[in-house]
Simulated scan of single mutants.
Amino acid sequence: MSATVCPPLPRALLIDLDGTIYHGGRMIEGADVWIASLREAGLPYLFVTNNSTASPEAFAERLRAMGIAAEPDQVCTSAQAAASYIATERPGASVFVIGESGLQDAVVGQGLTVVERDADVVLQGLDRELSYERLTRAVRMIHAGARYVLTNPDLLLPMEEGVIPGAGSIAALLEAAGGVPPVVIGKPSSILVDYALARLSASAEQTWMVGDNMLTDIAAGARAGCPTALMLTGITTADNLERYIDRAGVRPDLVFHTLHELQAYIMQRLGT
């Protein structure tokens, strides 16, 4: 463990999933024990993920299958935050969705209308079955004046067998072809973090952001005013840490090699 500063005692935590708690279907060592210790200590937390592909129920089920106690209301996704953002900015908007079931469900859940043409908003996340035809349709709607909203800018996602292209890779094409930058909801934007803080009724100053990606998790936490704890368990590693710090333009307050280290540090600070 290394520290830039000694952050305030955590009163709540925002915890990334991909690369922090698991890789694909494999739990990262110590995740189950750490989350159990938070529950025992009575520390409130939310799992905050840029992944927009699945519902909170599906994420909670995946966590439980790994032996990690989780309920849907403990999961906060970029899909939920994006749908909430659109519903607030343009109530009743028509939305063309490039994304999977989690994003579609979140849009409908906010009372928005999913359409296939003439949309007010093009909402894009990760879509692993995306066709060239749907990309073309999205580009034409953006050119026609539809607002472009992006769930998250992750270029890569860590999986068991290696990384895969993320929503940000698709967005690079849409932004180049559409000619306008998207409104980014997920990390490193503070919109998702602010949405999660509101759900916890927690202040940023006393809520730690825990994640593995300097460019998304740590950057978002810093922008929102949260103390940040970087895990070297996913995208950011000991070998590329300084390069990612340069790219992110911020330093994490704390750096941990394992979740066991993080658990020991928090429990020591709490005096348990």
Results as ranks from 00 to 15, higher is better:
residue 1 M to T: 13
residue 2 S to V: 08
residue 3 A to M: 10
residue 4 T to V: 12
residue 8 P to M: 07
residue 12 A to I: 02
residue 14 L to C: 09
residue 14 L to P: 00
residue 17 L to I: 15
residue 19 G to R: 06
residue 24 G to C: 11
residue 24 G to I: 05
residue 25 G to T: 08
residue 25 G to C: 04
residue 28 I to S: 08
residue 30 G to A: 09
residue 31 A to L: 06
residue 32 D to K: 06
residue 32 D to Q: 09
residue 37 S to W: 15
residue 37 S to D: 12
residue 38 L to K: 01
residue 38 L to S: 05
residue 40 E to P: 04
residue 40 E to I: 11
residue 41 A to V: 10
residue 42 G to W: 13
residue 42 G to R: 05
residue 43 L to E: 11
residue 45 Y to H: 15
residue 49 T to R: 04
residue 49 T to W: 06
residue 50 N to D: 11
residue 54 A to T: 03
residue 62 R to W: 04
residue 64 R to H: 02
residue 67 G to C: 10
residue 67 G to K: 12
residue 70 A to D: 04
residue 71 E to R: 14
residue 74 Q to W: 14
residue 75 V to M: 03
residue 77 T to H: 05
residue 86 I to T: 00
residue 92 G to K: 11
residue 94 S to M: 07
residue 94 S to Q: 14
residue 97 V to M: 01
residue 105 D to S: 10
residue 108 V to E: 11
residue 109 G to I: 02
residue 111 G to L: 08
residue 111 G to A: 12
residue 128 R to N: 05
residue 130 L to A: 05
residue 134 R to D: 12
residue 135 L to F: 07
residue 136 T to L: 13
residue 138 A to I: 08
residue 138 A to F: 08
residue 145 G to K: 02
residue 146 A to M: 03
residue 148 Y to E: 02
residue 150 L to P: 01
residue 151 T to H: 03
residue 155 L to W: 02
residue 156 L to F: 09
residue 156 L to D: 07
residue 157 L to A: 09
residue 158 P to R: 14
residue 160 E to L: 14
residue 161 E to R: 15
residue 164 I to T: 12
residue 167 A to Q: 05
residue 175 E to T: 15
residue 176 A to F: 13
residue 176 A to T: 14
residue 179 G to E: 09
residue 179 G to H: 09
residue 180 V to Y: 04
residue 189 S to V: 09
residue 192 L to H: 04
residue 196 A to C: 03
residue 200 L to P: 02
residue 201 S to A: 12
residue 203 S to L: 14
residue 208 W to S: 01
residue 209 M to N: 02
residue 213 N to G: 06
residue 216 T to W: 06
residue 218 I to T: 00
residue 223 R to H: 14
residue 226 C to N: 14
residue 229 A to H: 06
residue 234 G to L: 15
residue 237 T to I: 06
residue 238 A to N: 09
residue 239 D to M: 07
residue 245 I to C: 11
residue 254 L to S: 07
residue 254 L to T: 01
residue 258 T to H: 12
residue 259 L to K: 08
residue 259 L to N: 05
residue 262 L to T: 07
residue 262 L to E: 06
residue 265 Y to V: 01
residue 266 I to L: 12
residue 269 R to M: 15
residue 271 G to F: 13
